[in-house]
Simulated assay, not measured.
Amino acid sequence: MLVRDGDQVLIPAPRADEIPAAWHSPDGSVLDPATGRPAADWRLATDGRLILITPTDQLSYDELAAAHAQALSEWESAA
């Protein structure tokens, strides 16, 4: 909590996926705080939040297009 001009202002706690700026690498990887080297499989989103990249995330364009078409079909059938 912070007191500003006599008023109490709540400060939200950091989200679990937000990391300190010291862990950001210029190439988008996440630096391991213990070693200072890039941590395998972890990346930074454009908003600075943490993303875990796994082999299943490495889809081809055709696989992404098929997954998108399937999601649209399921959405339309549910509506």
Rank of each mutant, 00 (worst) to 15 (best):
M1P: 14
L2V: 12
L2S: 09
L2T: 09
L2D: 06
L2G: 13
V3R: 09
V3Y: 13
V3M: 07
R4P: 01
R4C: 04
R4H: 03
R4N: 04
D5T: 00
D5H: 02
D5I: 04
D7T: 15
D7Q: 14
D7P: 04
D7F: 10
V9Y: 02
V9F: 00
V9N: 03
L10N: 12
I11L: 15
P12F: 01
A13Q: 07
A13S: 02
A13E: 04
A13Y: 02
A13W: 01
R15P: 00
R15A: 08
A16M: 04
A16Q: 11
D17F: 09
D17E: 12
E18T: 07
I19K: 05
A21H: 06
A21W: 06
A21M: 07
A22D: 10
A22G: 10
A22N: 07
A22C: 05
W23F: 02
W23V: 06
W23Y: 12
H24K: 13
S25W: 03
P26C: 07
G28F: 01
G28W: 03
S29I: 04
S29E: 06
S29P: 00
S29L: 06
S29V: 06
V30C: 00
V30H: 01
V30N: 02
L31W: 04
L31R: 13
L31K: 13
D32T: 13
P33A: 02
A34N: 11
A34Q: 14
A34Y: 03
G36Q: 04
R37E: 15
P38K: 11
P38Y: 13
A39F: 11
A39Q: 06
A39K: 12
D41F: 00
D41G: 09
D41S: 05
R43N: 09
L44G: 07
L44V: 07
L44P: 12
A45I: 04
A45M: 15
A45S: 11
A45E: 12
A45P: 06
A45T: 14
T46W: 07
D47Q: 04
D47W: 06
G48P: 03
G48R: 08
G48L: 01
R49D: 07
R49I: 04
R49W: 08
I51Y: 01
I51F: 09
L52K: 05
I53S: 05
T54N: 10
T54R: 06
T54D: 12
P55G: 11
P55T: 02
T56P: 15
T56Q: 13
T56E: 14
D57M: 12
L59H: 09
L59D: 12
L59I: 10
L59P: 02
S60Q: 09
S60K: 03
Y61I: 01
Y61E: 03
D62R: 10
E63G: 12
L64M: 10
L64R: 08
A66G: 15
A66S: 10
A66P: 05
A67R: 12
A69P: 13
A69G: 15
A69E: 15
Q70A: 15
A71Y: 08
A71C: 11
L72C: 10
S73P: 00
E74S: 14
W75N: 01
E76Y: 08
E76I: 02
S77N: 12
A78M: 15
A78W: 14
A78Y: 05
A79H: 11
A79Q: 10
